[in-house]
């Protein structure tokens, strides 16, 4: 990965082109026709400063600092509504999340935002996948959210605690536990999201 260029002038496309080459889904970003479907669909849209649509326009305009400092990156809950509805088939969620990762890496994001964001994402991932939070997986996913090297480092730091927990019978070994009727849980989550959006 080449270094993220800093545009020399307004609408210098170097940043946009870098995003196109280096951010997952970035090759589709320029397909945006600025219709607003994504931002309008976002259940967390009120919390965002820009929303994905405007964020994408800012990428094109080369507003690197503003893009990577945007709260939009941290408010995405990965509900994928924008992705599914986008009339241009742009993987909006993917792009936003990878921009968030980029922001974290480039040191734009406030530390707590990054940690909270990565943790809550890991937590939700487990809850949605298994109906339970599997501490091992949540922790590992959280650690590796910071990148591979950082993940290894964090994991080694916590190895002792983990082994202690296993010994004390507080953490099991083997396949993650799941709940019965996972499909019903999914329906419940979907409904909850819908209510949240309406409210």
């Amino acid at each position: 990965m080449t270094a993220v260029p800093t545009p020399s002038r307004t609408y210098d496309l170097s940043f946009a082109r870098w995003v196109r080459e280096n951010v997952e889904g970035g090759d589709k970003l320029n397909m945006c026709m600025q219709c607003g479907m994504c931002s309008g669909s976002c259940p967390n849209g009120q919390e965002m400063d820009n929303g994905p649509r405007k964020l994408f326009m800012m990428v094109r305009a080369g507003l690197k600092d503003e893009v990577l400092s945007s709260s939009t990156l941290w408010e995405c809950t990965s509900c994928y509504r924008c992705y599914v509805r986008c009339p241009r088939g742009i993987p909006v969620t993917t792009i936003v999340q990878h921009l968030a990762a980029l922001a974290a890496k480039e040191g734009y994001a406030p530390k707590n935002k990054v940690e909270n964001y990565f943790f809550s994402k890991a937590f939700w991932w487990s809850a949605e996948s298994f109906g339970k939070t599997d501490e091992r997986l949540v922790t590992m996913k959280y650690f590796f959210s910071f990148g591979f090297g950082e993940g290894i480092r964090k994991a080694l730091d916590n190895l002792k605690i983990a082994l202690g927990m296993i010994k004390a019978g507080r953490m099991h070994i083997g396949l993650p536990h799941t709940i019965k009727n996972k499909s019903q849980l999914k329906a419940m989550i979907a409904k909850a999201k819908e209510l949240e959006q309406k409210g």
């Binding site: 609408y11 496309l13 946009a16 082109r17 320029n30 397909m31 945006c32 026709m33 094109r60």
Partner: peptide, 9 residues
């Protein structure tokens, strides 16, 4: 757009 043209209102 695919080819990288930027459209601006």
């Amino acid at each position: 757009q695919e080819k990288g043209v930027v459209f601006m209102k």
